[in-house]
Design a protein around this nucleic acid. Structure first.
Lengths: 189, 189
DNA sequence: GTTTATCTACCTACTGGTAGGTAGTTCTAA
DNA sequence: TTAGAACTACCTACCAGTAGGTAGATAAAC
């Protein structure tokens, strides 16, 4: 079964934002990539703001599911943080794409308040999931907490996003690996 | 003594890239901000590529000086890392501007090979300075190393850049502070 | 009298977005 | 059961505005 046009547009646009940035792709790019006319894209997403909003909505939903999957599969705090690290590593696609949230954050001035709010919500979701995971890890003895769990969570998120940038800059996944060695080292079990 | 036009253009462009992104500012913006015509900017920087190259060259030189200043002022490893953290915090300008290197990294596809090389060089410079500092800290007993110094350096850099993004997303400096609590906690003395 | 720094006037290509039209499908009611 | 209304998903043709960039004139400074 073939993907519908709307989904195909979202896929294409997501890749464009993550590899080139929000201000560096156009409806014309999408049109020629998908094989329909530029005007037809406005049928699915009247404005670029609508498109970016839909992009973030889908991205948040996807990550929400992925986090739930990790919870279902990994019982300990350490295993969950390790799985999250793998998730971020995979999202890099050999160093050619950033996390959508990272990319949007750099272009935050070009975005509507609605999308900015979604960016915040995404980070809140990630931070609170990480916090819950490290608290679990502290209880089950697989994670050593040196600072309050809320701060640990913000630090882990910052480290993963920063490691993303480093890998993207060099187009080299090993930059990501180098930066997260210390994080993985702290996970016992 | 008034700033010369070239310097004024560099200042304006740097702020534009750091707050809006490389693909979201134009020569027309600079022209109206500085009060000369768009065509006159091409006299100083024939192409946008030339401008971004000059931007990175100046930025690297500035940071090189700043790192040397930190070395001169702070004798211990911990004090140096702490000073670097303060430097990054200051660079945020209340959460409205990213590090130039972070911003350029997100737009890496729009940049020339020369500028991409400069981005790499900037990160190399930062990473090797941090590595030297944590090695010093390990010797003078002010920094505890859990992983090889090279990895610690990449992790610190990623954390600082990630913390930048978090603060930028919310326009709130305290996001930066929250993320670096753990790093500062590890610095003794 | 050449160099420096600016100007006016212009170029082509592209931006996001709109107006209006059209096949083909699906829903609705006599 | 079928005529017609409505909807879906696209189209062509166009808009005003902006992008980066260029040619050539000018006026002051060295």
């Amino acid at each position: 079964m073939p993907k519908d046009t709307r989904t195909e547009l979202l896929d294409l646009a997501e890749r464009a934002v993550r590899s080139r940035g929000f201000d560096a792709f156009s409806y014309a790019d999408l049109a020629s990539a998908i094989g329909i006319r530029k005007a037809s894209i406005h049928y699915h997403f009247p404005t670029k703001a609508d498109l970016s909003d839909a992009l973030m909505t889908r991205y948040r939903a996807r990550f929400s599911t992925l986090l739930a999957d990790i919870n279902a599969e990994h019982p300990t705090g350490a295993a969950r943080i390790r799985a999250l690290t793998t998730l971020y590593r995979t999202a890099l696609h050999d160093g050619s794409t950033l996390c959508l949230c990272v990319s949007f954050t750099s272009s935050v001035e070009s975005l509507t308040p609605a999308v900015r709010t979604q960016i915040k919500m995404f980070r809140e979701m990630m931070a609170s999931w990480i916090e819950t995971s490290v608290v679990l890890g502290a209880k089950d003895g697989t994670v050593v907490l040196n600072t309050p769990a809320a701060n640990e969570a913000r630090a882990v998120l910052a480290l993963l996003e920063g490691a993303h940038l480093a890998a993207r800059a060099d187009g080299d996944l090993s930059r990501f690996d180098d930066a997260v060695v210390g994080l993985l080292e702290r996970l016992k079990e």
